[in-house]
Design a protein around this nucleic acid. Sequence first.
DNA 1: TTTCTTGCAAAACTTTTGCACGTTA
DNA 2: TAACGTGCAAAAGTTTTGCAAGAAA
Lengths: 146, 146
Amino acid sequence: MKTPQDAFSDYLTDQNLKMTPQRRLILETMLKQGDHVSSEELYARVKKKDPSIGQATVYRTLKLLSDSGLVEPLDFADGVTRYEPSYGKEHHDHLICERCGKNIEIMDETIERRQEAIAREHGFTLCSHKMYLYGVCPDCRKKGEA
Amino acid sequence: MKTPQDAFSDYLTDQNLKMTPQRRLILETMLKQGDHVSSEELYARVKKKDPSIGQATVYRTLKLLSDSGLVEPLDFADGVTRYEPSYGKEHHDHLICERCGKNIEIMDETIERRQEAIAREHGFTLCSHKMYLYGVCPDCRKKGEA
DNA sequence: TTTCTTGCAAAACTTTTGCACGTTA
DNA sequence: TAACGTGCAAAAGTTTTGCAAGAAA
């Protein structure tokens, strides 16, 4: 399997776009510690390595990474779009603690199959889905009781 | 079962808040044709009945209705928060056509049970969930082929 | 009469865009 | 060298907030 870096290069070439140091850096940073980061957060991290980089470039690059399938936009309904690396990773959903924000990745074959079935029953061709489970994690529940 | 209007009144009283003509009108409008409306859209409708009403009042009232459990915020990731009446209605999820925006309400016992089970396996107490299925509806697929 | 609510306008935020200048292929 | 990319600042779009005046309990 191609590295994410190569996959990105290939995508850019394919679209007649160009590789730049900024794009490389943003992808690197995203891959390194990029779980559920917002554009703003990523911008802050990227800026430490290259203070001259602009916020707009981060937004624009995230869109490219998204279009190329290297990262996945997430929507936790907190007002900002978050992203996670998705290249070569299996699809998963999220179980989120409403108190502390803890975020557990889940995958469930039964649910995936039912989703397909439901779409088919309505004549839809399923493209993607989003599922977020919100609850209270064990730690927070203990604190609540104490 | 209480009417939504009464439930809202009770909620307001309970919170030491007050019923007003604006709040009554916004709730009425929401109930009447309120499926998947944004604040902006609701504002437009409400304004026809009472042109003096302010946008901010609609936002503020939607928050109240949300907090009181009368309406449910939806997040179709189109940049705006949408709402639907939820009082006395069964929970359901959404199957959305990516092309035309068609929106079908779905409910599935199997999935709901699995969600509970997954949360439990991780020690979570499940509070709520959101699930959106994105696909292409039969009509749009036909158009695409034509 | 006290507290809450309203409408307005301004502010706050996230994200997008226009533009002149630099860079990539 | 032709096309694309960048940083900056301004703009766009949604939602929130401060405030003075008005209304509900």
